[in-house]
Design a binder for these strands. Structure first.
Lengths: 343, 343
DNA sequence: TCAAAAAATGTAAGCGCTTACATTGACTTT
DNA sequence: AAAGTCAATGTAAGCGCTTACATTTTTTGA
């Protein structure tokens, strides 16, 4: 307790202010219960000592942490980084702190993080997508921790969510592709396993093909984790095919960026030789050359709304799932297929 | 305590295993102190009850949190997102959790977050850059919280850091610019106030000009926060000048991307009419058209090393600041100035 | 003016852990 | 066989807060 790094406690403040610890606690948590005079006394003691409450003690005693956890696949993807940034800002407004963990798209890691965050007493959890072991949902229910699913929206579940329906979101895009005359379609997707968003996008494409009288099984599908390099590799595989597709639709913009890059390296004209589309509309999309045709997703808004919803859920309020709308962004990488121009 | 959402405590485990709470605690924290038999008993009780320690109680009692805090300007910038992702992964390996806060480049917010994170008992703090009120450093010292500065490296301070010297990092780039014959140079920087990294880059440029016999005051400097739009606006201002520069050097790649975009919109050829350079070498850089000449920074490695260093600092080990090296990436956006080709 | 109600404050029992210290046996030594 | 070691475990005192309940003070109303 040398004067140099002495950390004051509630009791120190109480002594200095000449009141009980309960009063100090009240002064900090519900000031209106105190008389003006006492409040002033306490406040100046707080200021003088530079007191800051010990968070752990606070949480332990009050049984709430004012902390929410978010488990995202990776921060190293603009869409999550951006959404999380907004999420965190709004959380700050609500007086809550964020703890982030990333699962690297691995269910086992996700489970582990969920347990850790729960042990830390997270008041609520933000999860990405629906797909996970029911065991996890049971655990959450058992622990009574509210959780919000983001980046996805489904109606056939009681899990609250904020996001969009991926199947529906990709629909205008695939319909445009088909309308332009494409019949030889490829899709570069993230691995569909454990990833409902990726899966729903593919399903959306297949359904539209069916509706248009095309054989959904004719879709050339490649699954590969999101990254520029993987996008390049997948694209290369596609154009090496006997009968290369006239359009390479991509599960997200990062993959699409890889495809564009590879096309350039191979001196294949986009979109004249082959069209390319993305999903997400990150900055990259409008910076690419030509600009990427993609589906715009309101990541920032989603993060903000997620924070508000989770805040309410933590306060035991009933919250309805919220569907956000996405928007087709037609830009330069999509045109009619090479074989049937002017068809 | 209904069977449904009953959360077991240490005491419950102890009772079930027929031992004292101390034994259970030891079993979890230093198992080798126990006899094989007891350990087994305890472990199975733990498993049976699905026990997980309450983090807050743990921290309160043990006076350490196994948590580190990071305060970054924004997650919404690939460099920090990437660095942080690596930081967090490595932290996970060390059994520590990360709490992130973002300051939005505002010193007041940074201070506030530092206080919050300290109150939460963060065992250590990751900070970006050196520039901050001495009051903050005093606070940290007083509270005895180890802190590591990243994304910068300076020798004339006792604050431990991991990063690179921004002045030095930009040197090969500006020297190349000058060597190519550019004499009318512009620099689009982030606001230099409270941002040593931005400032050092400008200083580096000025110093090189001086060394080359150019007047450093002739540097056309624009300060604007990092964003594509701001890059565009700044670039527009530059080319509207009576005597537009032959090269627009940018404080980072995001600004540079904006500049390239604007150049395209104005149909000004890059690099023939005007050269553009960036800093950071984010994915964008090699995706742009033409590819951006920039300075490569090892963000991922920095994040990882930062975690290791901070881990050691928390364990009271002495740690030396570490300098990382950057590398010039000459690509397509830089060439000789229009006025003096073949000079 | 005085009892009753309301407001302000104090008392003290935890919250779920860790850990210094005490205790208990089982083994060594001599 | 007594004394000393040492490993394994138990006891219990906190860690710094919150909050139910008790107590005191002030306000109110008739």
């Amino acid at each position: 307790m040398s004067q140099s790094n002495f950390i004051p406690t509630l009791a120190d403040v109480a002594k200095k202010a000449g009141v009980s610890t309960a009063t100090v606690s009240r002064c900090l948590n519900s000031p209106d219960q105190l008389s003006q005079a006492t409040r002033k006394k306490v406040m100046s003691a707080v200021a003088e000592l530079g007191y800051a409450p010990n968070f752990n003690a606070q949480s332990l005693a009050a049984r709430r942490t004012n902390t929410v956890g978010a488990i995202i696949p990776t921060m190293d993807n603009a869409i999550f980084a951006r959404g999380l940034q907004a999420f965190q800002e709004e959380l700050g407004n609500l007086g809550k702190t964020l703890i982030v963990a990333s699962s690297s798209y691995r269910p086992d890691l996700e489970l582990e993080h969920i347990k850790t965050l729960t042990a830390r007493g997270a008041d609520g959890l933000l999860l990405i997508g629906y797909d996970r072991n029911p065991e996890i949902y049971n655990f959450l229910k058992q622990r009574d921790v509210p959780s919000l699913v983001a980046w996805a929206y489904q109606t056939d579940t009681d899990q609250t969510s904020v996001g969009f329906n991926n199947e529906k979101a990709i629909r205008p895009l695939i319909e445009e592709v088909i309308a332009l005359g494409h019949r030889n379609i490829a899709f570069i997707s993230a691995p569909k396993k454990n990833n409902d968003r990726a899966r729903d996008r593919v399903t959306g494409v297949r359904m539209a093909m069916q509706r248009a009288g095309l054989d959904p099984r004719s879709l050339k599908l490649i699954e590969t984790p999101y990254s520029i390099e993987n996008g390049q590799a997948a694209f290369q595989k596609l154009v090496a095919l006997d009968c290369p597709p006239t359009v390479a639709m991509c599960g997200n913009d990062v993959l699409a960026a890889g495809a564009i890059k590879q096309a350039k390296e191979m001196a294949l004209s986009v979109p004249d030789y082959i069209s390319i589309t993305g999903f997400d509309d990150i900055e990259l999309a409008s910076l690419a050359e030509p600009q990427l045709t993609t589906v715009h997703v309101p990541h920032k808004a989603m993060g903000k709304i997620a924070a508000q919803m989770l805040g309410k859920m933590i306060d035991q309020q009933i919250v309805e799932s919220q569907e956000l709308s996405t928007e087709l962004r037609l830009r330069g990488t999509l045109t009619t297929p090479r074989a049937c121009k002017l068809k």
